[in-house]
Nucleic acid binder design. Structure first.
Lengths: 161, 161
DNA sequence: TGATTTTATTACGTATGCGTATTATTTGTA
DNA sequence: TACAAATAATACGCATACGTAATAAAATCA
């Protein structure tokens, strides 16, 4: 602990990779003409795009359905106060809509718009490209271990907080 | 690529771990009475604290010495425009000072204050504690592989951008 | 040496996340 | 049923990072 080089510090590595990766992703989104999809949206969209195996996405429901903002925040690991502005921006960019919950007048449900559904494939393609760019030199086995470690850390953090 | 669960997405994992880890670190800093050290400061301080092996830190110099803001930003992986506000806040919190460069009147050199030097040990201890909290269940070998992967990714990103 | 380019920093607006306080409802309890 | 407690969402200010434009000074070049 006498000497701690930044690159030997897990916290430093995680934050710098997060910053750099977000920056790279934004660049690729702009280049592809999808800059109305901000990087932060993707952490939400990935959840809304999840398929129930019957062809229905979590974010796509019939009239008066959807998922509550706070529940979506819990899934995505964001505080309610962070969700408000994020959903504001996603709504302004036409990817989701707020729908009043008929059973609970406090609640607002979030649904994907058609646009929010349509961008799924191109965005996943861009994500895939970006990931491949940055792990090109990394053996698959090590990549899997790293993913596993990150998943465990995430679980631990959610337990601690 | 048909179905991509967030937890299987490297970008998602990295950003969530970064957010959660920063949040946890902030909490521990507050609890320890070091909340004047914001998480973002640490990515800068780690560099300024680096010892040259002769007892002199990178951020500690005689009168009219120091490290240029932009050079520090390059080390820490931040854009110049990000550095201004960050150094503003660190200076306001008494950890660093700006000193005019006598050789280049465009430049401002950054130096650690005594306070910035003194917080080194306690902050490194807090960092150590936080890291141990979140990797408690992870075998050392896997942790090392994960660190290695993150370092490689960081290098690759810096090459791409 | 004068003009152009590069470099160092800052200013300002945008994106993103959080904590705390506030407002509406709903729930739970006496 | 009336009142307290919990829940859903938002508002607001702070922290953090970026891109672009502006400013000043140094470096380069013709």
């Amino acid at each position: 602990m006498e000497s701690l080089h930044p690159n030997d510090c897990l916290y430093y590595l995680i934050t710098r990779v997060s910053i750099g990766l977000t920056s790279l992703l934004k660049k690729r989104l702009v280049e592809s003409g999808y800059d109305f999809v901000k990087p932060a949206y993707i952490g939400i969209l990935l959840w809304l795009w999840i398929d129930d195996g019957m062809g229905t996405m979590l974010g796509k429901f019939g009239k008066d359905e959807g998922i509550k903002i706070n529940d979506l925040g819990k899934l995505a690991g964001l505080e309610p106060s962070s969700m408000t502005g994020l959903i504001d921006r996603m709504e302004k960019d036409g990817l989701v809509i707020r729908v009043n919950d008929p059973k609970d007048r406090r609640a607002t449900n979030i649904q994907l718009t058609q646009k929010g559904i349509d961008v799924r494939k191109p965005i996943l393609t861009i994500m895939d490209t970006v990931i491949k760019e940055i792990i090109a030199t990394i053996p698959k086995k090590q990549e899997n271990i790293a993913m596993d470690v990150l998943q465990k850390i995430l679980t631990t953090i959610n337990t601690l907080e």
